[in-house]
């Protein structure tokens, strides 16, 4: 045992050099922010900005009260929107499942050729927003529900495919080993060793995506792909602000309900 006075009382979390470095870093960050702010606001017309509260109050007053008489007319487009989301999700799931199995390291038949292809499909689908898919598809297959459904499906492939292939890669390998040691065929190993392990992930991913798709499909009408977005665009164009409010409230309600449904279903499955 040595005397306690033998040990130093001094201890610092960082060395002086790293403290200086951090401090300079923060100063540089603040300087960058100020510079960017000036760049951004160079073209701002400040008269409009100071006017903003008045404008907002003006539009706000036109938006209220929401036009309740407009609701019956919205029911069919709303139903269309829900159908776009649901059918689009189903389509996305159907296409994403094989892609996920091709992309997962432990199930891909060819890691050098098919896996990169599958990963590319996933990235391509994810990098293009549903609205842009819809724009393209309206041009290709014409305006309407079908374009919306296909747009949602194509956008969903990447999301579902990515999460599902990650779930496949995380399975317990011992269960697969045991089934293959029995003398099961490749397809049987898939259905007994792998599928039971990813079933909960599969449902939870699909329902999560359906929930997202409900939200995404509400705006697809803006580019002519059907649903409640069409009505929203029409109301915006005619400056019918009270109708816009009605539509926004309806969308909000739908999203809340879909979120509630998806959380209920997920809890029931897992």
């Amino acid at each position: 045992m040595s005397e306690i006075s033998h040990y130093s009382e001094l201890w610092t979390h960082r060395t002086p050099k790293s403290r200086l470095l951090r401090w300079t870093g923060w100063v540089a960050l603040v300087a960058l922010f100020i510079w960017c702010w000036q760049l951004m606001t160079a073209n701002t017309i400040w008269y409009f900005v100071t006017d903003a509260p008045r404008q907002a109050a003006d539009i706000g007053s036109r938006m209220f009260p929401p036009s309740l008489a407009y609701i019956p007319e919205l029911m069919v487009p709303l139903w269309d929107t829900i159908n776009i989301a649901t059918l689009g999700t189903v389509g996305g799931v159907v296409m994403a499942v094989p892609v996920a199995f091709l992309a997962a390291r432990n199930t891909t038949p060819s890691a050098t050729f098919l896996r990169p292809v599958a990963l590319f499909i996933i990235v391509a689908s994810r990098s293009i927003n549903a609205l842009i898919w819809a724009l393209l598809l309206v041009a290709i297959i014409g305006p309407g529900l079908l374009a919306g459904i296909v747009a949602i499906a194509l956008r969903s492939i990447g999301f579902i495919g990515k999460l599902l292939y990650e779930a496949i890669e995380e399975i317990d390998h011992r269960q697969v080993e045991a089934v293959s040691a029995i003398g099961a065929s490749g397809a049987q190993i898939l259905s007994f060793g792998i599928v039971p392990q990813i079933t909960p992930a599969f449902w939870s991913i699909s329902i999560f995506r359906w929930d997202i798709n409900i939200r995404e499909s509400t705006i697809l009408g803006l580019v002519g792909a059907g649903g409640i977005g069409l009505k929203l665009q029409a109301s915006l164009n005619t400056l019918a602000w009270s109708q816009v409010t009605t539509i926004l409230i309806l969308i909000l309600g739908t999203v809340i309900v879909s979120e509630w449904v998806s959380s209920k279903v997920r809890r029931a499955i897992i």
């Binding site: 269960q175 080993e177 045991a178 392990q197």
Partner: peptide, 9 residues
């Protein structure tokens, strides 16, 4: 197997 390796679900 040691860890049983049953298909748990």
């Amino acid at each position: 197997f040691q860890e049983y390796a049953l298909v748990e679900r």
